[in-house]
Computed example of a mutant assay.
Amino acid sequence: MKTKAFRAALPYTLPICVGFLFLGMSYGFLMRSQGFSFVYPMLMSLFIFAGSMEFVTANLLLMPTFQPLHAFLLTLMVNARHLFYGLSMLDKFQNLGWKKPYLIFGLCDETFSIHCAVPPPEGVDRGWFMFFVTVLNQLYWVAGATLGALLGYLIHFNTTGIEFVMTALFVVMFLNQWEERKDHRPALIGVGCTLLCLLVLGSDHFLLPAMGLIILCFLWLRRRSPQEVSP
């Protein structure tokens, strides 16, 4: 059962492996360039496993004084989208026993996409399939971050702007979704609400209001045309 689920999950995660190795190495290089041992990105990618927040944490660790409340609120804003991911996964995670806590912890953007778009193949246990998708994706990230930090001992270059790789990843995912779907209303709503909140509230406070406004627009649109809209 486990072997069959692993073999079924592996092909779906290989494209993510390429991206995660590159992004993870970028993160590892960044941490090493700021003077951290390779142990830091290795353990942070293992226990935090939130790519955007890990890049931000590099700066938090360099602050003169640690501010727990600031770190908590910043983490909430950066990863607030996972609140909505989690709500949509409640049914899929039911009755999975000990796997459920780890599946919740390891729910990154790419894993969420596979869980939503790829049903387990016939004859493959759903829980084990989702488990291996999640654990493989995290292993790719941990390996990339660790390898990047280790190479940082040998290779030295200007890492200014390297954190932009996360933004680039989301842009690529957006373009891929745009090309695959005929209905572009959800994408336009997301872009429009985000730009509106950014202009009104500024770059430091726009994220949570933008996501709330997007959800409200989706709910309104779904009530008007429930059979046509798939955010």
Rank of each mutant, 00 (worst) to 15 (best):
Q67I: 07
G123I: 10
T65V: 15
D109V: 04
A58R: 07
L151K: 04
P64L: 09
F129D: 00
G152P: 11
I48P: 06
L147E: 01
L139F: 13
P64R: 01
V124D: 04
L83Q: 04
V142I: 15
L87M: 14
L73W: 14
F157G: 07
L60N: 05
Y153L: 08
T111F: 06
D125F: 06
L83E: 00
F47G: 13
W141V: 04
P64V: 03
E110M: 02
S88H: 07
S52H: 06
G161Y: 02
I114V: 15
L139Y: 06
L73E: 01
T160Q: 11
C116M: 12
G127R: 01
G106R: 04
F93R: 00
M77Q: 10
E54P: 09
Y153K: 11
L61S: 07
M130F: 15
Y102I: 13
L154F: 15
M53E: 10
L62I: 08
F132Y: 11
F157L: 04
V118W: 11
S88I: 02
V142P: 02
P68T: 09
F66K: 09
T159D: 05
L62N: 12
D109W: 08
R81I: 12
E110A: 11
L87W: 11
G51P: 11
F84V: 10
C116E: 12
D109I: 04
P64I: 05
P68D: 10
L87A: 08
N137M: 13
M53G: 14
N158L: 05
A71P: 06
F66R: 00
